[in-house]
Simulated scan of single mutants.
Amino acid sequence: MRSVFTIIICVLLQTPTLNSDIYCDSENETCTRDISGEKFIFYDVNPPEGFNLRRDVYMRFAIMLAEAKRNGRKRNWHLVLPPWHNLYHWKNDKSDPIPWSSFFDTVLLKSYTSVVELHEVFSNIQELKIDRLYVLQNYPNAFENGDFTEKWKVADTCNNYERSFWGYKNISVKEEICINFQGKISQLWDVIALHPADKHVMFSHGEIPLHDTYGTKTYWDCRRSMVFNKQLIEKSEQYISKYLNCHTKLCSNYLSVHWRRQDFAQYRKNKVPSIAGTARQIDKAIKNFNSYIYKVYVATDAPFSVLRQLETELTYYGYTVFYYLPSDDDIETFKDGGLAIIDQIICSHAAYFIGTHESTFTYRIQEEREILGFYSTTTFNRFCPDKGQCEKPSKWTIVH
């Protein structure tokens, strides 16, 4: 049986110089906006956090604003989408900031709540001064007296915070205030109320506030608005049609896996399987689900030598293995974040999916599959260690 080998090579590209195709020019009347009287919330995320966790942080802020507007409040507030810049796990896309439109359909994002790209804010101003930067930090003891209590207070001391402002040099801060914070994100409105006249407020460490309602209809309404842009969807569907011979949204002829290695294999050895164990689990899943499937699509961060070993094991069981190998044009066009999204889309359409426990990359695939309408039994599956206990994955099913 002939194997098809394609592999995502995490080669991060040099982001192109800022230009009018992506960023608005203040002299271009078609992209300017009147921002008088409008107010803006900015946020950033702890630098080591990855692309898929940042997507979840966005949802927390978007839902916070959408719910306030739904209740007739904060009508003149907007959420500024922080550009993708200098992510730790990206290797070359670390020069210019990348807008959200490079990865998502921003028209649909804006249909959910009032969000703007940072370059839109700069469409008619040359310098941005943040009125108040609130540096969020965790309480030293989250479970004081054994209870997790929602609270916040202005802190006496402040952790070191490096202001990067996504690579922009024309952003400054008038005042910085450190906040010990614990609890749901809607409490940030109380923080903002400390200075009600502010028009530009920013929160660092946006990952610290929690969802108000995780997994509810409100959550899924926001999640459904996070649609990938047309170019990424088309590229993924072309691959699925050409190599996996599927021409529908709900494919039935291939199994997909997200096989997280690298840091997981190094630091979580007791939670992930060996290469041989991975192949055995894939084979068992296919035989239990549909023994007529012989195609396996693998999304992974494993080095090529490790992938070849897994391919050898799966070939022994009679499977044809597929990976996505981006062309030079793909790398230039889609960048690191887009290449990962293509992997996720291809995994999302498979008849059956196996993910890596506690990986946000896996979580996002599971959400996509819930939106597509796959049975949950084909979605919430994980790789288990070769020996020992294997905790069942949580099932966060869609709510309509």
Rank of each mutant, 00 (worst) to 15 (best):
V173E: 10
R223E: 15
I331L: 13
Q366N: 14
S101N: 06
H357Q: 12
Y363V: 05
K174G: 06
S348R: 10
Y294V: 11
I346G: 01
K242H: 15
G167Y: 01
F361P: 00
S3Y: 10
Y239G: 02
P16I: 07
F104R: 08
M64N: 12
E49I: 08
D330E: 08
K392N: 15
E176G: 06
P326V: 10
E370Y: 02
T397V: 09
D44P: 04
E49L: 14
Q231P: 04
T360N: 02
N245T: 03
K91C: 02
Q344T: 06
N159H: 03
I179T: 13
G206T: 02
E367H: 02
V272F: 07
T149G: 02
R70H: 05
F181H: 04
Q262N: 15
I7N: 14
R2T: 10
I342V: 12
K69G: 10
T218P: 05
L244M: 04
K151N: 10
N124Y: 05
K271S: 15
N141H: 11
G277V: 02
Y161M: 06
A197S: 15
G167S: 05
S102N: 15
P140L: 00
L232G: 08
E162R: 12
K174Q: 13
Q309G: 12
Y58H: 13
I8S: 13
E144D: 13
A197D: 14
P196E: 15
H78Q: 14
A66M: 08
T30W: 13
R70E: 13
F61M: 08
A299L: 09
L244H: 01
K153H: 08
S225G: 04
I346D: 06
S256P: 01
L81H: 04
V154M: 01
I179C: 11
P97I: 05
I341T: 10
W220F: 11
G337Y: 07
S348D: 11
